[in-house]
Design a protein around this nucleic acid. Structure first.
Lengths: 244, 244
DNA sequence: CAGTGGTCTAGACCACCCT
DNA sequence: GGGTGGTCTAGACCACTGG
């Protein structure tokens, strides 16, 4: 197995593949050390930086651990080093052709509630509330409840709802933008009303994805959550070697 | 703001910080293009590779998007590009001082069940079942149910339970090792018995973390799940710029 | 075509670890 | 001290994008 410098596949990727295969075959068992970067570079006829880049790939894949001054070690796998992405939801939102939205409720809410605290408001300050169901291929996918500050400078409530809360959060368009945000993933059960909107059984276990976004003034600007069935949003994480 | 070559902080990290701050101030708004790598390198007195490495950091943080031949663009944030890690659980398992385990049940199960399919067995082939509660500081954290093949070559059921299922999956020790695995995160509700074991209310919403691990022969070797309260395993994801 | 990111080299020096 | 990973340079050429 040699590195083909004519190949469209970069040298570092080829080397990474070779190492991955070797690990997968058990030639470098978990816990063992990989040859030094310089050794690998020389034995495969590439420069040190290139060998390093190959190992970078393996490191990003979670396959190896670097220890300065010691070496690069093959990681043992376990219930860790795994991460779950929201790609299923993202992909769904990206398929705009088959998306539709139904507004369930809009309101200016002046009574106290947990959203006031999240947005850094006093209990009696008004917030804009919008609830909507998002459909994909005419099937309900998620119920989105969102709160934003009621800002008199905004042209209208409607534009705020559309521009800030929906478009920005979900489709990466528009002018206003958020600087940062934090998401929480929580298991939950559907209440009767929610279940009806999503056409799911009452008490169904779902994900509740809470979001809190901040604007460029570092002020909390959008708080709310998505309720999604785990059947519409499978959270899967592969660890170890899968590319044989 | 200049790069201090005497600083213990690497030049690429300093440059990344400067760019991050500039983005955070709105000097490069979302959707806009960052200066070219060569431009940045020259204007900050570093080599192209170093500037590139700085931008690599921002890319890994999900702050920018590279487009070959076009440029590097500041990303707009939304309900995507975020990932949830199991660090809370991992950290807990790493604190061995305060951990204890109580075996609830062990058995050789010969009746059909979903675990047979997961492990690639016939409905009447025997599997080893072990259920245990893991405690941290004497508080129950998770109920772990795991199935493995009943392998007559193994020295004993007990060693298998201890070596393969528990130690390997959770604490990264021992000799046997898995090559790869897949995890599923699912919302669930506690049944009466489970709730009692975890000292939680019945019907509490929890995470069900399913695992299926494969050995180096590519055979499914360990199937099961952890039930964990979301209070013990907060899944949080920060997106955008947080390091001001 | 010029501008941009992507890959690659052949060195160099440093920080860390172990014996 | 010798081996290891971590950073850095000053070039080079390629692949892709857009006018």
């Amino acid at each position: 197995m040699k590195i083909d410098k004519e190949s469209p596949l970069p040298a570092y990727a080829q080397l990474a593949n070779m190492l991955r295969t070797a690990i997968s075959r058990g030639e470098y068992p978990p816990g063992e050390r990989l040859p030094a970067e310089l050794t690998l570079a020389k034995s495969h006829g590439v420069s040190a930086m290139t060998a390093r880049q190959a190992i970078n790939m393996l490191e990003e894949e979670g396959l190896v651990d670097r220890k300065q001054g010691k070496g690069t070690y093959i990681r043992k796998i376990g219930v860790s080093s795994s991460s779950f992405t929201l790609d299923p939801l993202t992909n769904l939102f990206a398929d705009k052709e088959n998306l539709s939205v139904r507004i369930i409720k809009t309101a200016i809410k002046k009574t106290p509630g947990p959203e006031k605290e999240a947005l850094g408001l006093l209990p009696n300050q008004p917030v804009v509330l919008v609830e909507r169901v998002i459909y994909h291929c005419y099937q309900p996918v998620t119920l989105h409840v969102a709160y934003t500050k009621f800002d008199p400078k905004s042209p209208s409530v409607e534009s705020m709802l559309d521009t800030v809360v929906l478009t920005e959060l979900m489709f990466h368009e528009g002018n206003a933008n958020f600087k940062r945000g934090v998401l929480h993933l929580i298991p939950a059960q559907l209440e009767k009303r929610e279940a009806a909107l999503l056409k799911l059984p009452e008490n169904e276990s779902v994900f509740r994805l809470e979001h809190l976004y901040y604007d460029f003034n570092n002020a909390a600007a959008a708080y709310g959550w998505f309720l999604v069935s785990h059947k519409k949003m499978t959270l899967k994480s592969k660890i170890g070697i899968w590319n044989d």
